[in-house]
Simulated assay, not measured.
Amino acid sequence: MSGPAAGAAAPVALRELLVELNDLKRVRSAGRPGSVAERLFAQGWSALTGGAAPEAVALEITAKTLAACRLCDLDAAFLEAAGLSDEAVGDVLVTGFDAVTGEVDEALRGRLRERLRTRASLEAGPVPGFVAALAQQPRAGVTCPGKPRILLEPPENHAEHCLMVAVYGVVLSPFYRADPTTVFLAAMAHHFHNAAMPDAGFTGEMLLGDHLGPIMARTAGWALGELDARLRAEVERARAVLPDDATAEGRAFHAADAIDRVLQIAQHLRAASLTMGTVLDEMELVHAGPVKGFHDRVLKDMRIP
Rank of each mutant, 00 (worst) to 15 (best):
232 R>E: 12
186 A>V: 05
266 A>L: 05
100 V>M: 05
56 A>N: 12
199 D>E: 09
101 T>K: 00
166 A>I: 02
105 D>H: 11
149 R>A: 14
245 D>G: 14
199 D>A: 12
210 D>M: 10
197 M>S: 01
125 G>H: 00
62 T>N: 08
198 P>Q: 09
20 E>F: 13
301 D>V: 13
139 R>C: 12
32 R>V: 05
217 A>V: 07
116 L>N: 00
278 T>D: 14
256 A>I: 06
155 P>Q: 11
301 D>R: 15
152 L>M: 11
199 D>L: 10
54 P>A: 04
266 A>W: 07
176 Y>F: 15
146 G>E: 10
129 G>C: 09
243 P>I: 13
288 A>D: 14
81 A>K: 14
284 E>N: 13
147 K>F: 13
188 M>Y: 04
186 A>K: 11
209 G>Q: 10
19 V>F: 13
282 E>H: 14
179 D>I: 07
118 T>L: 15
251 R>W: 11
1 M>P: 04
204 G>W: 15
7 G>R: 02
248 A>I: 09
148 P>G: 08
236 E>D: 06
56 A>L: 12
165 V>S: 06
17 L>K: 06
152 L>F: 08
130 F>R: 13
66 L>F: 00
292 K>A: 07
135 A>K: 06
40 L>I: 03
54 P>W: 05
34 G>F: 02
5 A>N: 06
176 Y>V: 03
164 M>V: 07
101 T>G: 03
96 G>S: 02
276 M>G: 14
143 T>D: 02
277 G>L: 09
217 A>C: 02
135 A>R: 10
254 H>M: 02
73 D>I: 04
56 A>Q: 11
172 L>E: 01
16 E>R: 12
104 V>F: 07
199 D>F: 11
103 E>S: 12
145 P>G: 09
98 D>T: 07
30 A>W: 02
175 F>I: 01
17 L>F: 09
176 Y>M: 07
32 R>K: 01
49 T>Q: 11
40 L>P: 00
254 H>F: 03
93 L>E: 01
95 T>H: 13
43 Q>D: 15
100 V>D: 05
152 L>P: 02
78 F>M: 05
262 V>H: 09
49 T>I: 03
200 A>C: 15
202 F>N: 04
234 E>H: 08
269 L>T: 10
192 F>N: 13
35 S>F: 01
291 V>A: 05
277 G>Y: 08
290 P>T: 03
65 T>E: 06
79 L>R: 01
4 P>E: 14
167 V>H: 00
